[in-house]
């Protein structure tokens, strides 16, 4: 256990270092010069050099990295170029929105995928299994940008069940309860779109692991103890089957970000994706860097958290 934990922590640290180097370099890989783009059309070689000195861009690269790292660790991601607003301010609100979208979508995904896969695995090849397996396969093959069109058309334009694109998910002025209500009302549809792909993935993984687990000897033992089928399915089979699904949930976060950007664009939500595209058009290097950094760190930290949870779910993990 201690070995497992220390390994994970060492890996986390190494990854965070590498990611910070990567994000630091990303800006240097991109064409153009930050100082030039800050100064805009009025730039002269003299003013650029002056600003370079001011920004520390004339120092050796490793020194720049450590200075930059120092700022990052103090929560300072720099000042966005065109707007002169701190990057943290720009990213802060969008980050909150994206985290909420991901959390709700993953909650929905597990809520739907787990019971479906448990009951589908109960009779492999049975009606429920075939129906759910083929549906989830179809959903798996349906890219999120097609799903989003469907959903937006049906629920907002056709039926008006949910607020259309552009509704503010963070209203102010109402009571906190009504604000939360409005927020959920706005967020539920984009989260659902985001959840569909995850449902398909989690269903496939958990179902096949469940089928496998249900053939294990300890399930026969559980039956020989006179336990009911539901108890065997839920108490004895789900946990040992869920490791692949949980691990994939970690990997899935990185993939989910593509869907997230699409959902943001289609629902006109001010998330990191919209900010990123804006920043790319505006040559706003520091915001791009900040978004890349925040997104990568989030993915890594989520994966780390899942690694920490796994031994609690299955004690065999920490001993492998």
């Amino acid at each position: 256990m201690t070995r497992y934990l220390s390994q994970r922590f060492a890996a986390l640290f190494a990854i965070l270092v590498l990611i910070s180097v990567g994000c630091f370099y990303l800006v240097h890989l991109l064409p153009g010069n930050p100082a030039a783009s800050i100064l805009g059309v009025t730039a002269t070689p003299q003013t650029i050099a002056a600003l370079d000195r001011q920004l520390g861009l004339d120092k050796p690269i490793y020194e720049q990295y450590f200075i930059w790292l120092g700022h990052i660790l103090h929560g300072n991601l720099g000042i966005a170029t065109p707007s002169r607003v701190p990057v943290t301010t720009i990213i802060g609100q969008s980050y909150k929105l994206d985290v909420e979208l991901i959390v709700i979508s993953q909650f929905i995904a597990f809520l739907i995928a787990i019971p479906l896969s448990v009951y589908a695995a109960r009779r492999p090849g049975g009606f429920l299994d075939q129906a759910t397996t083929s549906t989830s396969f179809a959903l798996f093959c349906l890219p999120s940008f097609i799903i989003v069109l469907w959903v937006v058309n049906l629920f907002t334009i056709h039926w008006h069940t949910f607020p259309g694109p552009g509704t503010n998910p963070f209203p102010t002025g109402g009571s906190w309860l009504s604000n939360i209500g409005t927020n959920l009302y706005v967020m539920i549809l984009p989260s659902l779109v985001l959840a569909i792909g995850s449902i398909a993935i989690y269903f496939r993984l958990l179902r096949s692991e469940m089928v496998f687990t249900l053939q294990e000897e300890f399930i026969t033992v559980a039956r020989s103890k006179g336990l009911t089928t539901n108890r065997i399915l839920w108490r004895h089979a789900v946990r040992p089957s869920s490791i692949t699904m949980l691990t994939s949930a970690g990997n899935n976060i990185a993939l989910l970000i593509t869907g997230l950007f699409i959902v943001e664009v289609k629902f006109a939500l001010p998330g990191l994706g919209s900010e990123l595209i804006g920043a790319i058009y505006a040559n706003d290097y520091l915001t791009i860097q900040g978004i890349a950094l925040v997104a990568a760190i989030t993915v890594v930290v989520v994966n780390f958290a899942i690694d920490m949870i796994l031994p609690l779910v299955d004690p065999r993990i920490a001993r492998a």
């Binding site: 970000i257 990123l276 790319i280 890349a292």
Partner: peptide
């Protein structure tokens, strides 16, 4: 683990 879409877009 790295969100590829960000790098790809940039």
């Amino acid at each position: 683990a790295f969100p590829a879409i960000i790098a790809v877009l940039c």
